[in-house]
Amino acid sequence: MKRKWLLWLPFALGLVLLGLFYVGLKKPEDHIIVSRMVGKPLPLFTAPAALPGQPGAATADYRMGKPRLLNIFASWCVPCVAEVPVLLRLKAMGVEVDGIAVHDTTEALQSFLARNGNPYTRIGRDDQSRIQLMLGSSGVPETFVIDGRGMIVHQHIGVVSEADIPKLLGLLGQQK
């Protein structure tokens, strides 16, 4: 029985496998893909104005010294409706919120903003998700915090809720 350990090797490997499955089951289900652009400078982009009478957005706007929120949204995105009131509150607190409208049309956007309110200072259009891809964003809504020097400080994935306000204010405040 010199090689007894060898006979128990399959058993040990089986245990490792089952342990792995257990870990896999216990792992919270998350399908969130975090952007690698956080902590890096905002890539160069120019988003033309999505609406007449409201400016579009470009990288240069984020190097003016004041931190801003860059909100990726779309009028066809159902959860986006839920975060508009929160964005309006942030706006009321003096936060600059810009929007990037993904795969949108002027008419749909106008009626979306007329229905829900317009929290945005600037709205750029992104018809082919080019800006979204540059930012490493994988869906709508997502909100990026950009400091006054054009650095991406934070990525918020999903709807911004009331509970997120203090955190966002903190991030924006630090960057002043």
Partner: peptide, 10 residues
């Protein structure tokens, strides 16, 4: 089943 069979094997 797998653990039992592998233990029996060993």
């Amino acid at each position: 089943y797998i653990g039992g069979a592998l233990a029996l094997f060993a």
